[in-house]
Write a protein that binds this DNA or RNA. Structure first.
Length: 586
RNA sequence: UCGGGGAUCGUCCAACGGCAGGACUCCAGAUUCUGGCUCUGGAUAUCUAGGUUCGAAUCCUAGUCCCCGAACCA
């Protein structure tokens, strides 16, 4: 295994990663969806003279999570399919909520998911402020916008509600010259927040609330992390269509919650006479059972130290998943298998994410031996000082990965879970008098059990081995059902293993409706730290980010907290063990 | 009940007037030096009621249910 790890959850790593087999291209392409159909129509109708261009427009006010990942895969796959371009655009129009920290993290996470640099395709809405401002003046001059003097409360009151039409503001028909002068004064910082606002002049009585003279610019004293102090900042509904247009976006995909905003999106483009305007297409966002994605909730978990940080392996953030060991390909596979629809948003089972992880990890992870709960076994008829080395294949799914050497000696560790004094029927593992195979090594038979006289706890096993079964194959061809993983005690490397379970309790499905705080839905057993695990010596010095399969246990990733002499492994996902658990159910 | 959107296996997605199919999950079996992987077989769905049609998940009418929307958030 490589000691030059590159795909770790650590902060130092950028987009560069891709262990063989874990990039987006190693997983089946996205199936057709309705958006592809719409774009094909646009191409057939020659709607655009420029290449197809999509974008992912996050607001940099939190860390990237699975919801964002879905949007990235959709946009990127669309661009790829039509040989077009894909942009990352920071939708940074609200300096009060955004931060440079998030901007940088967002880009790194997107690039990690993509497995490549975004080179010249990273944009910022804030870079368009001058152009956006000029467009606003045009709007005013064309009498499509006016400066409002009503207070926020008054505006709300004038706007009406679902059942009552709004009334026009008394400032609605002020002359464009006056609005223009006031707008420039807003820009110059002459007013305090809330004193003035620029409004689009559309229809105060529209049945679509978004069209009731929406606010275009508001005054904010915050200094933008990138653009500096502008005093006035554009609203999403205004900045978004125009940013799309400026960038040459053709198809602007977003969640269905923005469907009501589409008339407004189109209105700005039309009034500003944008040629070949971009087109907004909404798709159904999807939730994942047992997972909360809301940014402010995730932030709370970090701030209250309920988790160790945004990259806590239990977090549904991209860097959390990454630190836990989830390969990009698993996220791509998950998102692509989900498909894209415009039906009502639904909830997908976490199972599918885990299934995707197993699929990719099975293909790509070296098999190693790791014992989580060590139980010593002494092979009584094995010479005291003898050490044999077995060369084993790294990954049977991928023989090209080569082999690994594994030492064997008289004293070994096996897993406590692999021994039962009084086993149920169909239990294939070790018990007194029973013979099992030590994988790739020898057949052994349990000949004795050593117990702590005080507690009665099993502290050691005695066994004999069959010298004619070297490599694990008995000379007489007899069938041995059980195969155990093991680590030579003398050569064992001590390790810490962190077992993760769902961060939230199943009741979290009621979280949104319950109005109870998120803390009440945290699974108290979401993290179990094992400090006494042992692993085979080939793992000495593994690099953070390396992913392995502990045979018969699960997939694990090396945590950045590791030291060369004491690696730390995060459990990414368990192996399926349905059949085994079933023998205990009866 | 003001506007917008949507209803297909338990879940997610196909089928675009012509045999309702795939994936996850579940069940049964085969194989196996990982109780993994792989393979085989099986189970489960067109919201309701009318209509058009040789033929409807698809088109029409009515109804029901669900989601989104009244930030100077995105």
């Amino acid at each position: 295994m490589s000691k030059q790890g590159s795909d770790s959850g650590g902060e130092a790593q950028g987009f560069a990663n891709a262990k063989p087999g874990t990039g987006p291209d190693t997983v089946p392409a996205a199936p057709n969806n309705f958006i592809i159909g719409l774009i094909e129509e646009d191409i057939a109708n020659k709607r655009y003279s420029r290449p197809i261009c999509t974008r992912f427009p996050p607001e940099p006010n939190g860390y990237m999570h699975m919801g964002h990942a879905k949007a990235v895969t959709i946009g990127h796959d669309l661009a790829e399919r039509f040989h077009g371009l894909f942009n990352l655009r920071m939708d940074d129009t609200n300096p009060a909520a955004e931060d440079l920290e998030y901007v940088e993290a967002m880009q790194r996470d997107v690039e990690w998911l993509l497995g490549k640099s975004l080179e010249g395709r990273v944009f910022h809405a804030s870079d368009y402020y001058p152009q956006l401002y000029a467009y606003a003046e045009q709007l005013i001059q064309k009498d499509h916008a006016y400066v409002e003097e009503l207070t926020a409360e008054q505006i709300k009151e004038y706007r009406g509600n679902y059942h009552a039409a709004g009334r026009p503001s008394p400032f609605r028909n002020r002359p464009p010259e006056e609005s223009l002068r006031l707008f420039r004064e807003m820009r110059a910082g002459k007013f305090a927040p809330g004193e003035r606002v620029l409004r689009a002049k559309i229809d105060p009585a529209s049945p679509n609330m978004n069209m009731r003279d929406p606010i275009v610019y508001r005054i904010l004293t915050d200094v933008h992390h990138r653009a500096g102090a502008w005093h006035i900042y554009p609203m999403y509904d205004y900045a978004h269509p125009l940013s799309d247009a400026i960038e040459g976006i053709t198809h602007s995909t977003c969640g269905k919650e923005f469907a009501n905003h589409r008339p407004l999106y189109d209105w700005f483009l039309e009034k500003l006479e944008i040629k070949e305007p971009p087109r907004q297409i909404e798709f159904a966002e999807i939730g994942i059972t047992g997972i909360v994605l809301g940014k402010r909730h995730l932030r709370k978990l970090v701030e209250q130290k309920i988790v160790s940080g945004w990259d806590d392996p239990r977090m549904p953030t991209i860097r959390g998943l990454r630190r836990r060991g989830c390969p990009q390909a698993a996220i791509w596979q998950f998102c692509r298998e989900l498909g894209v629809s415009n039906s009502s948003p639904g909830e997908v089972h976490v199972d599918r994410l885990e299934h995707a992880m197993r699929e990719v990890l099975n293909r790509t992870s070296p098999r190693v031996m790791g014992v989580l709960y060590p139980l010593k076994v002494v092979i009584e008829n094995y010479p005291d000082d003898r050490v044999e080395t077995f060369d084993v294949i790294k990954n049977p799914e991928n023989p090209a990965d080569g082999t690994l050497s594994r030492p064997f000696s008289k004293e070994l560790y096996i897993d406590r879970a692999d021994f039962m004094e009084d086993p149920p029927k169909k239990y294939h593992r070790l018990s007194p008098g029973k013979e099992v195979r030590l994988r790739y090594a020898y057949l052994i038979t349990c000949t004795g059990v050593v117990k702590d006289p005080a507690t009665g706890e099993v502290i050691e096993l005695r066994a004999t081995y069959d010298p004619l079964s070297q490599g694990g194959e008995p000379a007489d061809g007899r069938k041995v059902q059980g195969t155990l993983h093991w680590v030579s005690a003398r050569h064992a490397l001590h390790a810490e293993v962190r077992l993760y379970d769902s961060l939230f309790t199943p009741e979290v499905e009621q979280f949104e409706k319950s109005e109870r705080p998120i803390e009440e839905f945290i699974n108290p057993a979401s993290l179990e730290v094992l400090t006494d695990a042992v692993v085979e010596p080939s793992l000495r010095g593994v690099a953070a980010g390396e992913r392995v399969q502990f045979e018969r246990v699960g997939y694990f990733a090396v945590d950045p907290d590791s030291t060369p002499e004491r690696p730390v492994f995060n459990r990414t996902v368990e192996l399926r063990d349905k059949k085994f658990s079933k023998i205990f159910q009866k």
